[in-house]
């Protein structure tokens, strides 16, 4: 029954599945899927007060094959319209033919601790949450797009009100389905917000707060993306982000990103 409500878009998958997510996970085993460990880390973090959690992400570039499954899963999870993308996989070609190689860098929002996009907002529509997430209040945003130009990672995009099925006889059911970003229900019907707003990755907080890992993490076929509470020394992300091969993008800007890359 819950599956049906999810398919009809009446409930968020995380909300429908929250009972399962809260249930006891299997005991730790050697060789288990790393998702299970992150799931345990997540449950532990959720037992703490929200202001003590520090969400962080680690992306292992050696494991990323550039399949863009995370990008598409994110589009599906957040019902992203044309022109809006939260986590593209940057595809960099290095060298000249025939000596060519490619490097893939998945680029979610960096959830900077010193975010350049937050102070520029003229109406306080975007802010840093206690748990480290840089959030957008869609009901407050006036759509001036200053935050979009201020982001040094191009991590914010503009919802111009389009649909993938524009110009076709019928709007697809998927596009009519609401998204549940920030734990609220957003339909975009009749040009309602988030149409006309700046949009960005939020580490799927609507899932995370119900004990479900972000969509890009669960959909990664190579398990290249890790997520968890950096304030928890036992969490997998804490282990990985302190490795010597961990780097952050454009550190010289002083933005203090919460996304780490393993080279």
């Amino acid at each position: 029954m819950w599956a049906l409500t999810v398919l009809e878009g009446q409930r968020a998958p995380a909300e429908a599945a929250s009972g399962a997510a809260g249930a006891a996970l299997p005991k730790e085993r050697e060789g288990e899927d790393v998702l299970l460990r992150m799931q345990r880390d997540l449950q532990r973090a959720l037992r703490k007060p929200a202001h003590l959690r520090r969400w962080a992400m680690v992306i292992d570039l050696r494991k990323c094959v550039g399949c863009s499954a995370c990008t598409i899963a994110c589009v599906a999870e957040n019902k992203l319209p044309p022109g809006v993308v939260y986590r593209p996989v940057v595809d960099e070609e290095i060298g000249t033919y025939p000596h060519v190689t490619r490097r893939f860098i998945p680029r979610p929002c960096m959830q900077c601790d010193n975010p350049p996009c937050v102070p520029v907002c003229p109406v306080n529509a975007t802010y840093k949450r206690a748990d480290g997430i840089v959030a957008v209040n869609y009901d407050q945003c006036i759509g001036c797009r200053y935050c979009i130009v201020a982001c040094p990672y191009n991590a914010r995009t503009f919802d111009a009100g389009e649909y993938y099925t524009d110009g076709t006889p019928e709007r697809s059911a998927v596009e009519k389905t609401p998204s549940f970003e920030y734990g609220k229900r957003w339909t975009r019907e009749h040009e309602a917000s988030p149409v006309g707003n700046a949009r960005k990755c939020h580490f799927c907080v609507h899932r995370v707060e119900r004990g479900v890992l972000p969509e890009c993490v669960t959909s990664c076929i190579g398990r290249a993306t890790y997520f968890g509470d950096a304030a928890d020394p036992d969490a997998l992300v804490s282990e990985l982000m302190h490795r010597p091969n961990a780097v952050r993008l454009k550190e010289e800007l002083g933005t203090k990103p919460r996304v780490y890359y393993l080279l």
Binding site: S68, T71, P82, G83, V89, V90
Partner: peptide
């Protein structure tokens, strides 16, 4: 592009 190669990533008329 803020990162080289972003122009080759997820694209579209507004990206």
């Amino acid at each position: 592009p803020a990162l080289r190669g972003l122009e080759q990533a997820f694209t579209g008329p507004r990206l």
